[in-house]
């Protein structure tokens, strides 16, 4: 059913990664991604792998949740691996047919590229698993706030507010859609059977009431916000202030050491 759709992948747990300031987390994840790409040889990539798994373990998010994310992109992964298999002709030839040959170099390259993608997926999943959608939006708002100096004064706040409202209303709309579906089913609507055209037509009695109630909700929300004197981002303060703590300091040190080691390994080998 619709209720099974989980939006945002936040996994509740108590870990240093969860405690990390979302702003710091976003920036560090970006650094992580950059340095996974910077890793040019097997040693550097091995170090990246160790570092990524260290963060995964630290986050206390079950491993199977990360693997679930891989499932969604297995095709991309497979495709990358196969393409790269033929991309290199270094090393000894293992297999030769027609004009194609598979070399040890090709296999090395194929594993290297696939592992890189896996690491990217894992490290970006850590961000979504350990940060609530709301603190993510807040962090994005804060990170983009320098844009106000180039004339985008209200845009950043408005954008963040829009995202927060959209996220907030997803469960509400799911619940509403389910109610309307039940009501139309009670009037004999058939949503499960029929040809594609019939099924699309069967959605009309659900979509129209859903659309109307969304518009109604939007008006109500706008009025409620105005009643509480909402007038955009200017002078608005937060109930929960984002504050950096020692966890963030350790996280930054970790990334700096990691980056230094990756660069060193790249130069040595």
């Amino acid at each position: 059913m619709l209720k099974d759709i989980t939006f945002g992948q936040y996994y509740e747990a108590s870990s240093p990664v969860h405690k990390c300031d979302p702003r710091v987390k976003i920036i560090l994840m970006l650094c992580f991604i950059v340095f996974i790409f910077v890793s040019q040889n097997a040693f550097a990539l091995a170090l990246s792998t160790v570092a990524v798994f260290f963060v995964l373990l630290l986050s206390r998010v079950p491993m199977k949740l990360f693997l679930k994310n891989l499932k969604a992109i297995w095709f991309v992964l497979f495709f990358t691996a196969v393409i790269n298999l033929f991309y290199s002709n270094s090393g000894t030839v293992l297999l030769h047919f027609w004009k194609i040959e598979i070399t040890t170099g090709g296999i090395y390259r194929s594993i290297f590229m696939a592992l890189r993608i896996v690491l990217l997926i894992f490290i970006s999943s850590v961000l979504t698993y350990t940060t609530t959608p709301n603190s993510l939006t807040e962090a994005i708002e804060r990170l983009l706030s320098p844009l106000k100096y180039i004339g985008l004064k209200n845009a950043v706040h408005t954008f963040a507010m829009m995202m927060t409202i959209a996220l907030r209303f997803i469960p509400t709309l799911i619940e509403e859609a389910e109610k309307i579906m039940n009501a139309q089913k009670a009037r004999g609507a058939d949503l499960e059977n029929g040809s594609l055209v019939e099924r699309v037509k069967a959605l009309i009695p659900i979509l129209i009431p859903l659309l109307i109630s969304s518009v109604r909700r939007a008006y109500e929300l706008a009025e409620a916000m105005e009643c509480r004197c909402y007038n955009g981002g200017e002078g608005k303060t937060r109930m929960k202030q984002l504050r950096m703590s020692t966890v963030d300091l350790y996280a930054i040190i970790f990334i700096v050491v990691f980056a230094a080691l990756v660069i060193t390994l790249n130069i040595i080998f």
Partner: peptide
């Protein structure tokens, strides 16, 4: 589906189902 025409169900706020 046949039972739904024998046992009618009017939900809370049924006006929200008009379309």
């Amino acid at each position: 589906r046949k039972i739904r025409s024998k046992v009618g169900l009017v939900f809370q706020y049924p006006e929200y189902q008009l379309f």
